[in-house]
Write a protein that binds this DNA or RNA. Structure first.
Lengths: 333, 333
DNA sequence: CAAAAAAAGCGAAACGTTTCGCATAAAACG
DNA sequence: CGTTTTATGCGAAACGTTTCGCTTTTTTTG
């Protein structure tokens, strides 16, 4: 049978309220503090989260809501944030919305029904309306990856448009101007931003972009694979490719290899996200790197700070991306 | 403010115990049932999970404990099982043990402290000792992927050794006998079983297996990539490869392509798990397919049945694997 | 139609914490 | 050393459900 305050009471002779004080950071005499600690040890006492939640109206749980668990970036963020929050004494409930705004809304209700104290999310619906219900209930929200249009909250983002522009500049530098865009559906914020940044930069250099080079499919390995095949098989195929996330890049690599083309020779490439396999592949890829650890760290920190002391101001952290030089771009001139 | 039974009482005039009966499947008059339903609608009532858990001593939560969230198979299982359980009205808490038995033990305590009603796990420690604490507390366990040595519970497994043997037979059939083994560390149950089944089958055909063809690295894309490079770069390199999971197979493909070799021509291949990319790659791969949907389905079903009606008998479901014929094996004779 | 049986509803006491206002003990002060 | 101030400890009343034993109502039956 699970132990309760009563058992600690029986063991120490202290009152229930004093014991509660011990657990909630009140002031006790050193002597009593030790007695309680000993009792806890001896009894192997564990707080009953139900009783605690019922009375305190705080669950010590945080909801993590992401668009899709099968994306490497999302999995990484989820896993790290969960870890950080657990360190700080918070449990997490993970939901993914399968890229469906309706599911996202439902999942949010689900989380709020579970009485989460906070929500960390990579939002899907870009208005952010779905998140209002959280804020209405006083549940703080931390956004990752994008700001929502009609909803303000703490957020950790990177400069996606800037990253796209950086990729374009690098390729132009090497003399490429006919560049295939291997990207996800433009309904996804990051995909759209990276693409727009990329196109704007080209426009800035007076390059008119032919729409047939722009391939938007689902942002997974499949999508990258098929887009790349299509791009490389077209009559006047591009000399370079820009992939706007990790999965697309993986699909691209497989497609390029399958066609017998050599990266950095027959086709130049700028990838995205220096994760897992991207670190070892030959030739080393030139790519945009997001500061993953910092993103998850800052997001966790923002959440924890909000939980411990709610404030009305919203802080937005924009973190820099970085271009890593590899050997996947051939110099044309 | 959140609504409570009291609000329903105020609205319907029924007693709290009657209302409780409604929620817990007791018998009420049709008229009262409807009245309560209306009140719930009107008030937008949601049960308070803390009060419910406190009183009933059931959390309606299930712990899902897996070795590693970054493995495609594990992610798939987790995501499906969570989905199925939620459908049945159970929340899930996901933990991964980062392939560390100590972390696994801790995570289990963590889950039990959270008062989960059951545990679904792909066990890491193969004795199963870590799971005893669950059973001692009357928390049912469902094993996926392997049986534990000193611990009996419901389980869903596949015939891993049989799968390995099947792969071997197929390759032998086509005349291959010098076969590289791209596999994970033999401390992992499935990797060991598949390897053993494979080797036994070769032995059965009187083939002595040279140890230098057996490459055991971490069972991820990296591992598959490096093992394959090593195998194909050795002096007397194998004519075929067998990869014992999805990630290893992905790494293998990338390495083979990088070396400019053609699958099904220069090197023959049997893969594992018909997921994602494996479905589209050219040439179509010959591979072992696990019945993924059935695994997760059966595991969820077992868990739910145990939760609804605890029984001491343990049911073990062994599901068949299947060999899918592709074009990745060249006929040698 | 009355008596017996079955069904439905009720009240009160939990479950294990937290919190509030007060009482008491210890420390500080003149 | 008595008095004020400050630090600790206490008791009791919640929090929102479930459950048990019992009463009342409804249905069945001869």
């Amino acid at each position: 049978m699970a132990k309760t305050y009563k058992d600690i009471q029986a063991s120490t002779g202290l009152s229930l309220s004093t014991i509660s004080k011990y657990f909630n950071g009140g002031t006790l005499r050193e002597e009593n503090r030790r007695a309680i600690e000993q009792a806890i040890q001896k009894l192997n006492y564990r707080v009953n989260p139900f009783a605690q939640g019922l009375k305190s109206r705080r669950s010590r749980k945080v909801g993590v809501l992401i668009p899709e668990l099968t994306s490497t970036f999302h999995t990484f963020v989820t896993s790290e944030v969960c870890h950080n929050l657990r360190q700080a004494g918070y449990d997490t409930i993970v939901c993914d919305s399968h890229l469906d705004p309706d599911v996202e809304r439902e999942a949010l209700s689900f989380l709020l029904d579970r009485m989460v104290d906070g929500i960390v999310t990579i939002p899907l619906d870009q208005t952010g309306m779905q998140l209002k219900q959280a804020q209405d209930r006083g549940v703080p929200v931390v956004l990752i990856d994008q700001l929502t249009r009609d909803f303000k909250a703490d957020a950790v983002i990177v400069d996606n448009a800037g990253a796209g522009a950086m990729a374009a500049r690098e390729l132009l530098e090497y003399g490429h101007s006919r560049i295939g865009l291997v990207t996800g559906l433009s309904s996804i914020y990051t995909m759209r931003e990276r693409t727009n940044g990329f196109l704007s930069e080209l426009a800035l250099h007076g390059i008119e972009y032919p729409q047939e080079l722009r391939h938007e499919l689902h942002f997974d390995v499949d999508g990258g694979y098929h887009s790349t095949l299509a791009l490389l098989n077209m009559p006047n195929s591009p000399t370079a490719l820009f992939c706007t996330n990790y999965e697309l890049m993986m699909g691209m690599i497989i497609a390029v290899n399958e066609l017998g083309a050599r990266i950095g020779e027959d086709i130049s490439v700028v990838g995205f996200d220096n994760l897992m396999l991207a670190r070892i592949i030959k030739p080393k890829l030139t790519m945009i790197k997001q500061p993953m650890e910092m993103i998850t760290q800052q997001a966790s920190r923002l959440m924890i700070e909000r939980l411990e002391n709610p404030e009305p101001v919203h802080r937005i952290m924009e973190l820099p991306t970085e271009l890593i030089h590899g050997e996947s771009i051939k110099r044309l001139r």
